[in-house]
Amino acid sequence: MAAGGDHGSPDSYRSPLASRYASPEMCFVFSDRYKFRTWRQLWLWLAEAEQTLGLPITDEQIQEMKSNLENIDFKMAAEEEKRLRHDVMAHVHTFGHCCPKAAGIIHLGATSCYVGDNTDLIILRNALDLLLPKLARVISRLADFAKERASLPTLGFTHFQPAQLTTVGKRCCLWIQDLCMDLQNLKRVRDDLRFRGVKGTTGTQASFLQLFEGDDHKVEQLDKMVTEKAGFKRAFIITGQTYTRKVDIEVLSVLASLGASVHKICTDIRLLANLKEMEEPFEKQQIGSSAMPYKRNPMRSERCCSLARHLMTLVMDPLQTASVQWFERTLDDSANRRICLAEAFLTADTILNTLQNISEGLVVYPKVIERRIRQELPFMATENIIMAMVKAGGSRQDCHEKIRVLSQQAASVVKQEGGDNDLIERIQVDAYFSPIHSQLDHLLDPSSFTGRASQQVQRFLEEEVYPLLKPYESVMKVKAELCL
């Protein structure tokens, strides 16, 4: 049975990233139509530049190519590739079939990587351009969430054990800070992308030097003109047959890092959902379990974690691919890159769409948070109580021993009897502590235990987050809708 299948058929496997999760716009960027249309555009740009620099290419040939950029006979191309065992030459023939007058000058002087690699770089750039505003929107939604809850005390956790208090907004800023680093890295790697350009079979530009009869300047002009037509500021000066596969490492490393950030955020949300302090959106008709109707599973956060793990592992592909590119190139890269580049971007696209949807509907339960604080705060307040007693004339050592005994009794009630923490009640009825009984409410005010959390939130948002989001103001209103 021949390899390949009808990918629109229910009898043929289709990647869930495309069929179930990723956005239509990201799927289109990695589609065959987008790819092969870009090949034709690159052939047109090459012909236009070659004509401008004096090669015998007519206006009629150029116009014929322009008129057929979208006229792609995919069936013919597939048949040609089956016959020739070469995808680029299959599309040269297919393009030439609908451009008979231009057929002889299509791909003039070029090698397969002229269309293959340059198209990949265009796709990487455009895919990054799709991700950047999506990530900015996630940051914006979380920034709104953090600002609104900047002063809401909550129990902090280290080692997932109760620690000092923080605020809900401050905790959210930990998430935002990681995503801001990801946004900066995505922008950097996007701006650092260079075009492969017009380089020939081993990167020496020998074929173009021959076409222009040894004119170095025209060869350099050709490279520059096509690079500018493709919208790049610069091209690699040095290439082998391909652009260095280190570029793929750079791009997928940034995406993998984004995956790590999203995994951490969504894990926190899942843990908070278990504590009943916070939940992701839950639709009115949504079913959490087929057997347990009360369940409210954090399905979206779980999906993000599941896909983020996949995204983090994909960076190993370009690392290994770059390491086995012998001399000017081997074909070890080809099949692998067809999979890992598309999957990385479709996965990143999915987790950003999902995280935006989550961040637009996060639900906080202040009463649950308050109750958990009441359970733990008495123990945390013991040092403040000791200091207040010393100020009232008591002995630190005597007070410490009193607190120690009462704390152990209260802990026994919590752990052995399943009761509430009654340390404060014990202190309130103990005559030894009568000098500070009137101060206990103040000493137990949760806001006095959150330090500068709310001020940190305000400063972080104003100095770091809002300036970073400013270039994306025009796209901030787009909502994230999930079908599944």
Rank of each mutant, 00 (worst) to 15 (best):
R141L: 14
E250R: 10
A256G: 13
K134D: 15
H7R: 12
W326N: 06
Q456D: 02
R329I: 06
L152K: 07
Q51G: 08
M312T: 08
I106N: 02
L69N: 06
L406K: 10
R270L: 06
Q177N: 14
A256R: 04
D6R: 11
A411K: 08
D87W: 02
G197S: 11
H263I: 10
Y432S: 10
T94W: 09
V315N: 09
I436F: 04
E279S: 03
V138W: 10
N336V: 13
R194C: 09
L271N: 01
K170M: 06
G8T: 15
K82T: 12
V457Q: 04
R141E: 14
H107D: 00
K470P: 05
S290C: 02
N353S: 13
R404P: 04
D422S: 06
S395W: 04
D422F: 09
D191S: 11
S395M: 08
A18G: 15
R196H: 14
T204L: 02
I424R: 14
T166V: 10
I373C: 06
A256T: 08
I176F: 02
L346V: 14
K402R: 13
A431T: 14
L307A: 14
Y365Q: 08
R338E: 03
R125E: 00
L174A: 14
R309V: 11
E360H: 09
E328A: 04
A291H: 03
R452V: 09
F28P: 01
S438Y: 09
M389C: 08
P467F: 06
P467Q: 08
V168E: 02
K470C: 13
F36D: 12
Q456S: 08
E79M: 09
R171A: 00
R374L: 06
P298N: 06
M225N: 08
S23E: 08
K82M: 13
A102R: 00
F157S: 08
F195Q: 00
G5V: 12
L484Q: 15
H97R: 13
K402G: 05
T321F: 06
D11W: 15
P56W: 05
H97L: 14
M181A: 08
S9K: 11
R83A: 12
L469Q: 02
L314K: 11
M387W: 00
M89K: 01
L352E: 03
Q241N: 01
S301V: 13
L186K: 03
L346E: 08
D73I: 05
F232P: 04
V478R: 15
T330D: 05
E277F: 01
G104S: 13
A102F: 03
G169D: 03
I249Y: 08
M387S: 15
D182L: 01
L307Q: 15
F28W: 07
A49P: 00
V405Y: 15
S12E: 14
D192M: 08
K75T: 15
A342R: 06
V115D: 01
F345S: 12
P100Y: 11
Q416F: 14
V168Y: 06
L46N: 07
L130K: 12
R372S: 05
D349W: 05
